[in-house]
């Protein structure tokens, strides 16, 4: 063995390997920034484009309107992000929105109390979320099937509870909250921002948040490290349910009526926002603030095209294009780095 000569090259290989890993660690952090700044850049580009094309776009009342539009989807996207980062998906959000809307409205009207109505809404939201978590962890249904089942059941329950009729005459305190605001910020947007800040903190800075990422990254490794994946699943689906409930009540307060009809596409918007924001549907990756940028991008796109008189049918097509492009760009970048 030519140990004497072999050693130096070995150390050199070691050193270069070290440097590679260091730069990869740095590149990883840069990627996270680049990814969100790409979405951010797209957002800025759209804002510039629409403000050039429509003088109305940057008016206070329109900014208020965009924030109103984004609020419900943003709240849903926060819950969806938790579920997606664990490697799951929650399709039931869109049916929970109307279910919680009508139930909180019915309770509010019969009890003549906003507080009791909101409490009932939160309970129903968290309860259905917990049921999703149960279906995923105990009979071990695939998340897609479990939440599709609760989607259907929640949809039907909302129709049964109301006989298919909207619930009117909600307390004025409730509807005023839904339509009021501070300067350009609607109250509902302030609620959404508060929720986003709180849950980004939970995800990034707490032990629970770290376990959410770990389970999504490698459930077997998470279990072998002593984590209880079932508890994590119960938690994330409950969070998603609870936030869907809040979203449902915000929407009800905003439109002053509780509609038992499914908030069509709102769960798709939420999923799209999370994915545009850099999350992987395979789990282990994603952030709340990325999802918020994604939600804002979709809302600006909707609002701008509306201002320009582009048909809503075209807008729906655009949503599909944006999602496909965002994920494709992200994939290409990931592959380039791997």
């Amino acid at each position: 063995m030519t140990q004497g000569t072999a050693l130096p090259t070995d150390t050199m290989a070691k050193r270069s390997e070290m440097e590679v890993t260091e730069s990869l660690g740095r590149r990883e952090r840069i990627r996270a920034v680049v990814n969100s700044s790409l979405v951010g850049a797209a957002l800025v580009a759209l804002v510039v484009l629409f403000s050039l094309l429509s003088p109305y776009f940057l008016s206070e009342s329109n900014i208020f309107r965009v924030l109103e539009q984004v609020s419900v989807v943003a709240v849903l996207a926060v819950g969806q992000a938790f579920v997606i980062i664990t490697g799951g998906i929650d399709l039931s959000e869109a049916a929970l929105v109307p279910l919680v809307g009508v139930i909180s409205a019915l309770v509010m009207n019969s009890q003549h109390s906003i507080v009791v109505g909101v409490a009932a809404g939160l309970a129903v939201g968290a309860g259905v979320g917990l049921l999703n978590g149960f279906l995923v962890t105990v009979p071990k249904l695939p998340p897609f099937i479990a939440t599709l089942a609760t989607f259907s059941a929640a949809d039907g329950t909302a129709l049964l509870a109301t006989g298919g009729q909207p619930v009117f005459n909600l307390p004025s305190g409730f509807t005023n909250f839904g339509q009021g605001g501070l300067s350009v910020f609607p109250y509902m947007a302030i609620v959404a921002i508060a929720i986003a800040v709180l849950f980004q903190f939970i995800l990034a800075r707490t032990t629970f948040g770290r376990h959410v990422y770990a389970m999504g990254s490698n459930p077997v490794a998470a279990r072998l490290a002593g984590l209880h994946n079932a508890r994590i699943s119960l938690m994330v689906y409950s969070i998603s349910g609870l936030l869907s409930g809040i979203g449902g009540m915000l929407l009800t307060a905003f439109v002053s009526t509780a509609q038992p009809a499914v908030a069509l596409n709102s769960e798709l918007d939420a999923i799209a926002a999370v994915v545009i924001g850099g999350a992987s549907l395979f789990g282990g990756e994603g952030t709340i603030w990325g999802a918020m940028l994604g939600a804002l991008l979709l809302a600006v796109l909707n609002n701008g095209t509306e201002l320009l008189g582009i048909s809503t049918y075209v807008q729906t097509v655009l949503l599909g294009v944006v999602v496909a492009v965002a994920v494709a760009v992200d994939n290409v970048r990931r592959k380039a780095e791997a």
């Binding site: 660690g25 707490t206 032990t207 770290r210 376990h211 990422y213 770990a214 999504g216 990254s217 490698n218 077997v220 490794a221 998470a222 072998l224 490290a225 002593g226 984590l227 282990g284 990756e285």
Partner: peptide, 20 residues
């Protein structure tokens, strides 16, 4: 090896017994 690929070295070493 049972490691969570998306997490960094410290997060993996402390997985399940984080200091908080």
């Amino acid at each position: 090896l049972a490691l969570a690929d998306h997490l960094d070295v410290v997060a993996n070493m402390f997985l399940g017994r984080e200091i908080s």
